[in-house]
Amino acid sequence: MSKGIAVLTAIAILILTVFLISMNTGLIHLTPMEVLRTLFGGGTDRQHLILFEFRLPRIIVSLLVGMGLAVSGCILQGITRNGLAEPGILGINAGAGLAVLIYIMYFPNMGSSPVFLLPLLAFGGAALTAIIIYLLAFKKNEGVSPFRLILTGIAMAAAIYAATVTITLQLNPEKFKFVERWNAGSIWGANWNFVLALLPWVLVLIPYAIYKARTLNVLNLGDQLAAGLGTRVEKERLRLIGVAVALAGASVAVSGSIAFIGLIAPHLARRLVGNRYEILLPTSALTGALLLIVADTLARPSEIPTGIVVAVIGAPFFLYLLARSKA
């Protein structure tokens, strides 16, 4: 536990460092002194607008999304006992994205009230996708095989992607451009309304997931042993899937389709602190936040979608894990 606290402290310091660097990074450069002066009430109106209306909301959204996707991936890896499980790979992100896309098609006015509906709509799409995947992967007298769950999720993601492309081709040029950037993983919800829309999901669900850490520890022992220890395996698994789906859906609603955070962060955290979920879940959350804020900081000067930077890191890492799983 003392090692875990030390690791958490070190990651938190790295996040704070990148946070400060990120406030200075963008198409319009602000010096560290200008940032500090603006933070403490000084600075010009232009500097105040850049920092408080554009950069700070985007940075905070990046942190929240990174935490949500990382914890979602960590839970899915725990309940499936498969290191390749991740909300993007399983199609959960795609289901959430399709729900948001349909909403954007018919309700293009993104006022303050509809913004708070987006996480709910994304959760609905993600939940429906998760239910279909779960039912297709379920076999009577066998339950859910982690291997079948992964393959079913990959197939479902491909089907949803095809539906998304079909819908996208019917959009006008302005909406088409937006959806293309969204699919690439652009942090598009970069204002305070989106921060407030996502914050309750993260503040409620991540502590609940940490509260269920002991259940995850037991589920990792296998269904039979977990049941022998008094755990209601299917009931607890469904609860945890619900938490993972809600975190992924709410995160996708404001960040676009960003993959691999839920895959990379738990693996890095596991190497740092081990497999006990009491410390693994918070370490995964901070690692995911660090990865996404670094990716967004690197992407921002050239205005490329953050998801592309994450994919450049995540795709080779996924192939590495896939090769190891076959060994």
Rank of each mutant, 00 (worst) to 15 (best):
Y161M: 11
V71K: 00
I79R: 00
S325V: 02
G189V: 03
G95F: 06
G307K: 07
A226R: 01
A244K: 03
L136N: 07
Q224H: 14
T38M: 11
I15Q: 04
W188Q: 08
I59P: 00
G88F: 00
L14H: 01
F178K: 06
L238W: 09
Y106R: 12
R239V: 15
V273M: 05
L101M: 15
G78Y: 12
F52I: 12
A190M: 06
L36Y: 10
G256I: 04
G222T: 08
L268R: 01
L151S: 08
L196P: 00
I308G: 02
V252F: 04
G125H: 07
E86K: 04
G125I: 08
N82P: 05
L117E: 03
L135Q: 13
L39W: 12
M110I: 08
F147W: 07
L14M: 11
P119R: 03
P200D: 08
V115A: 12
P119A: 11
V273Q: 04
P146C: 06
V7C: 12
A96P: 05
L63D: 02
G249I: 06
R300K: 12
P114E: 06
R58S: 02
I79H: 05
L229T: 04
L219G: 13
K139H: 13
L247I: 02
V310F: 04
G66Q: 01
A159C: 11
I304T: 10
S72Q: 06
P119N: 09
A130K: 01
A269E: 07
A155F: 11
N24F: 01
L63T: 05
I60A: 02
E142L: 11
I21E: 08
G314N: 10
A269S: 11
